[in-house]
Amino acid sequence: MTEVRPPIPDSGNEDDVLDVSFVDASALVALADRDDASHAAAVGAYQDLVTSGFRLFTTDLALTSAHELISAVLGQDAARFWLAQCNILVYRIALADLEEGRRAIEEGWSAPDATLADTIHLAVLDRLGVTDVFAVDRAFLAMLG
């Protein structure tokens, strides 16, 4: 993971920084599914982020995607319980993010296997100035370089 340090808004001190990481759907699923191949690594990474003081957020898109996957594979009861336990701050995707992600796909300047969700999330990260990502999806991580 790379480190990002956007300033704390209106903190009055330019030296104050906030360590922020975006949590994508694959990380949410890997944490929730104790049998997933990446579960142990994801739990370790999550604990590292928390103990290092990172503030975590996801998006409505990633949360919805994770819920769909958990519901399909772990069952609806597990998905309902998971959703109730998730206390992560959710960023609402803006129309501009959707449009930028869509352009990246349509105009072919995204990675060949990028999904619309991937390119939208790249737009969000770019706009918020966040470069630290907690993900286990190899294709998405490859896009981030």
């Binding site: 104790r34 594979v73 772990l74 998971w82 336990q85 286990v136």
Partner: peptide, 13 residues
């Protein structure tokens, strides 16, 4: 929200 269920060996990566 950690380890709330098990897939039996999936691979989200």
């Amino acid at each position: 929200a950690i380890a709330i269920g098990g897939s039996g060996g999936a691979d989200i990566a």
